[in-house]
Design a protein around this nucleic acid. Structure first.
Ligand SMILES: NC(=O)c1ccc[n+]([C@@H]2O[C@H](COP(=O)([O-])OP(=O)(O)OC[C@H]3O[C@@H](n4cnc5c(N)ncnc54)[C@H](O)[C@@H]3O)[C@@H](O)[C@H]2O)c1
Ligand SMILES: NC(=O)c1ccc[n+]([C@@H]2O[C@H](COP(=O)([O-])OP(=O)(O)OC[C@H]3O[C@@H](n4cnc5c(N)ncnc54)[C@H](O)[C@@H]3O)[C@@H](O)[C@H]2O)c1
Lengths: 210, 210
DNA sequence: GAAAAGCTGTTATAGTTTTCACATGAAGAA
DNA sequence: TTCTTCATGTGAAAACTATAACAGCTTTTC
C-alpha cells in the first residue's frame, strides 16, 4: 500500500516501530534470522494482529507461511523511520547527566551521532568530552546552522529548559529530546520527546498495593 | 497491566496523571495558586475536555467558574498515584548512568528515595556513592526483603538486563524502571517502565523531512 | 506428492478514547 | 440584585484503535 510518503499513518503506529526495531535488534544479536508476528508479540506483550496491521501500513514485509526475515525487516523499518542514515545531534548541558550521555555509545550504535556540546558555565566550556570540546552557548546558533543539525538533547536544569528550547528553535532545531521535567512550549512544527524517569516510577506506584 | 483492587480506570488515564502533576509543580514553582483545565491543556498540548474527564474519574477536584486550586489538586493526584508517601528504590548497575542517577536529587525531590545500590563488579562494590555503599549482587535479595523494597531501577548492560530482572522478581520487586534497551519478559503482576532515549529520537526522525 | 501446519495481509467487528456541547454553579461588575 | 463571564463535570456522539477471523501462500511432514 503506502510507502514512505507521509500519508496518514497514526502517530501511535509510528511510536511502536522503534519498539519493534529494538526487539529485532535483540533477536539479531542472538543470531536469529527469521521471526514471526506471533513471536514478536509474545516478547513485547502485544497481539500478533497488531504487529501485522502496523507493518501492513508500509507494505508487505513478510512472507506467508514463513514470517519476517529479520535483517530485511530492520532495513525496512529503518527506512520508514528515516534512520537509514546517521543523524547529528547537539547536546546542551554538560552536567552529570550530559556527561553520561556524551560517553554513552548506545546513541552512535543506533545511528545518532552527538556532534557538538554546549554549556553556559565558563568552567565547563573548553572541556574535552569524548571527541568534542564543550562550546559556549554563544556559539550554538552558528554551529547548528553550519552543520545543519536538526536534533538536540536538552539536559539543563529545569529553570533554564524553556529558555534554551527557545534558542534551539530559533537556531533551526526541529526535534528536541528533553530530559528536564517540564513540558516545553514550542511551535507546532517542532517535535518534542520527554525523558522523565520519575514519571515512569509514578506510573507504577498507582498499581502497587500499600 | 493489572489493576490492583482499584476501579477500572483506563491505564492511559493513569499514565497522564504524572504529566498533569509535573505541570502543576511548575505552576506552583511560579507562585501560581489556581489553574484551569484550559490553561493546563494549553501548556500540555491536550484538550481541556480530556483533562476534566480524566480528573473526573477520581471525583470533583475543581470548582465551577473558578478552576482548580493547584495545591489541592497536587495533593489529590499524589494520593491517587500512591505517592503521598516516600518510596524506596533499589538501583542495580553503578556505571556511568547509574552514578548519574545516584547523584541526581530529582528522585528524592519527587518522593523516590534510592535506598541501596548493587553492582556485580568487585571493583565497584564498596564504593561510596551519595549516602550509600555499593553492595554485591549476592546481598541483593536479603537487602530488598529486609527493607521491603518494591521498586528497582535497572542500569546494567543490555546483555545482563533480563537475567538481573529475573533476580529482582525473585527477590520481591514488583516494579522495574528499565534503562537497558531491551523488552523484559516478566510475570503479569510485575510492572515495567522503559527509558530509552533512542526510541524518543527515532520517533522524531520519522517526521523530519530529508 | 498430498495433507497438515504455519504465517501473512486484510477486511469486518468490537472496544476504547477523545471530543462535543451543555446544564449547572461561582465570581465579579454595574 | 441581576447580568455577564467563566469554568467544571458529564452524557452522548464521533473518532480512533485493537482484535478476531479467514483467504491464500509457504513449508514441513509423512
Ligand atoms: N542526572 C540525572 O540522572 C537526571 C535524570 C533525569 C533528569 N535529569 C534532568 O536533566 C537535567 C540536567 O541534570 P544534571 O543532573 O546533569 O544537572 P547538572 O546541574 O549537573 O548539569 C546541568 C548543566 O547545565 C548547564 N546549564 C545551566 N544553565 C544552562 C543554560 N542556560 N544553557 C546551557 N547550559 C546550562 C550547567 O552549567 C550544567 O553543566 C535537569 O533538568 C535534571 O532534572 C537528570
Ligand atoms: N549512559 C547513558 O547515558 C545511558 C543512557 C541510556 C541507556 N543506558 C543504558 O543503561 C545501561 C547502563 O549504561 P552505562 O553507560 O551506565 O553502562 P556501564 O557499562 O558504564 O555500567 C554498567 C554497570 O553495570 C554493572 N553490571 C554488569 N553486569 C551486571 C550484573 N549482571 N549485575 C549487576 N551489575 C552488573 C557493571 O559492573 C557496570 O558498573 C545500559 O544498558 C545502557 O544501554 C545508558
Amino acid at each position: 500500500m503506502a510507502s514512505n510518503g507521509h500519508d496518514n499513518i497514526p502517530d501511535i503506529v509510528i511510536g511502536r516501530l522503534p519498539i519493534y526495531l529494538r526487539a529485532l535488534n535483540r533477536l539479531a544479536d542472538d543470531g536469529q534470522e527469521i521471526t514471526s508476528s506471533h513471536e514478536l508479540g509474545q516478547r513485547l506483550g502485544i497481539s500478533s494482529a497488531q504487529i501485522r496491521k502496523d507493518l501492513s501500513h508500509f507494505g508487505g514485509f513478510g512472507k506467508q507461511g514463513t514470517g519476517y526475515q529479520i535483517e530485511y525487516l530492520q532495513e525496512k523499518l529503518r527506512k520508514v523511520l528515516n534512520i537509514d542514515r546517521e543523524w547529528e545531534v547537539a547536546l546542551i548541558g554538560v552536567g552529570d547527566l550530559g556527561k553520561a550521555i556524551a560517553h554513552y555509545r548506545g546513541f552512535a550504535d543506533r545511528g545518532f551521532h552527538i556532534a557538538c556540546l554546549f554549556d553556559s558555565d565558563p568552567a565547563k566550556v573548553g572541556q574535552e568530552i569524548g571527541d568534542y570540546t564543550v562550546q559556549p552557548m554563544a556559539a550554538l546558533q552558528q554551529a547548528i546552522q553550519d552543520k545543519g543539525i536538526r536534533l538536540a538533547m536538552l539536559a539543563v536544569p529545569v529553570q533554564h529548559a524553556q529558555e534554551v528550547a527557545n534558542t534551539l528553535v530559533e537556531s533551526g532545531i526541529t526535534g528536541i529530546l528533553n530530559y528536564a521535567p517540564i513540558n516545553l512550549t514550542v511551535p507546532k512544527h517542532i517535535q518534542v520527546q520527554y525523558i522523565d524517569p520519575v514519571v515512569g516510577l509514578q506510573r507504577m506506584t498507582y498499581y502497587l498495593e500499600d
